[in-house]
Amino acid sequence: MTVLDRPVRTGAALKIRGLRRSFGSAVALDGLDLDVAPGELLALLGPSGCGKTTALRVLAGFEQPDAGQVLLDGEDIVPVPADRRDTAMVFQSYSLFPHLTATDNVAFGLRMRKVRAAERRARAAELLELVGLAGHGDRFPHQLSGGQQQRVALARALALRPRLLLLDEPLSALDARVRLTLREEIRRLQLELGITTVFVTHDQEEALSMADRVAVMNGGRLEQCASPRELYERPATGFVAEFVGTMNRVPGRVVGDDVVEVLGTRLPVEGPGGTGDVRVLLRPEALELTAGGSAHVTSSAFHGPTTRMRITLPDGTDVTADVPTHTAAELSPGSAVTVTPRQRPVLLASWDGAA
């Protein structure tokens, strides 16, 4: 029977309730509540110091919270030592034993649990094959690339068949091409094994492309937890709206109930409204450019099918617009343009107190 025939114990439900952790006067977690569904991959995303890594370390047992519960299938694991939690963690620094081969690194946890040698080596070989490293078992870490070392670390974490897999920015030390390949592999394995996974990253593209849901944190609190599409299209707060993706703030004026006029166009307001002069939040793809006008293109950057252009409006406001590359040639830097928002609901920057 193979590792795939005998998958990890899948479907653990994780509930975080009222988690608090302070370091002196610095509050890292301020009453965090979060649910992770069985078999879900949840990404924790936020700026440096938001508490996402502290939350992960509390889940792993490397930090003790000041208050709160971590319920894994209904059991509070806060009092349980890290080595008895039935969780596994993959670090950004690989943390492989340099004097052990790939096979022995993967089998290390099994050896600590007194699994027989033959079974250890068989399971390690199966897992190395699962992560695309068949035939590399006798190599030492220094003989492997960064991406290969991280695959070994992932295989080692899966060897114990944990109920909860924790990933601490595991791709940040890799180059862009390897990072893209490995994040697809991690997602494939997670879906194949059905293991509940919490993934910490500072990379928005990773979070939005890999996760079932993304939890955006700020100042130790949860701002919003939703699917990538919902976060991008229907942010719950101004912080989320401006943190996830690129957002323009454009002067506008409320001219009626839930209607704002911006760049000469009237648009419906989604979410809390305002009065008088406001700042309207517009994504780069929500702006259309046409040749001629009183705005000017200041720079452009080729992004494959789209070109990202920086435009200065007549009032001096700088905005970013994504336009189809096949139309961008006629809108080179220095060109006079007209900027028009597409007809879709917009958010106001002042809706949650943002300046």
Rank of each mutant, 00 (worst) to 15 (best):
D277I: 10
G353K: 13
R249K: 10
D104R: 15
Q143F: 10
D258F: 07
V58A: 10
R121M: 08
V269K: 04
T197R: 11
R183D: 04
A159S: 06
V240L: 12
G68M: 05
D86Y: 09
G264P: 08
V3F: 15
A329R: 15
T197Y: 12
A329N: 05
M1N: 14
M217K: 02
A157S: 14
V319S: 03
G316S: 07
P81F: 09
S300L: 11
G74R: 13
R6C: 09
R177V: 05
P162D: 01
A43I: 00
L182R: 04
E261S: 09
A328Q: 01
F302I: 01
D257K: 12
F140G: 05
V3A: 14
E230I: 04
G252P: 03
P345R: 11
A173H: 10
A173V: 00
G256T: 11
R163E: 01
D175W: 07
P38I: 00
A107N: 04
Q143M: 12
R249Q: 11
T201K: 12
A102S: 11
L282M: 12
G238Q: 01
R188T: 02
L128W: 03
R9P: 07
V297R: 15
F97Y: 15
A157N: 05
V178M: 11
P65R: 08
F62D: 03
E185W: 10
R57M: 02
T201W: 13
L71C: 12
G219P: 03
T317D: 10
A60E: 02
A88H: 02
G274D: 00
S95M: 06
V259R: 15
P228F: 00
E169F: 04
L313S: 12
F91V: 00
G24I: 08
V255E: 12
R344V: 10
R121G: 05
S335A: 15
D258T: 01
R279F: 06
Q150V: 00
D83A: 13
E119M: 03
R310C: 13
I311R: 08
L96W: 09
M210Q: 13
R163C: 02
V8T: 09
L347P: 03
S294Q: 14
A55C: 14
V106G: 04
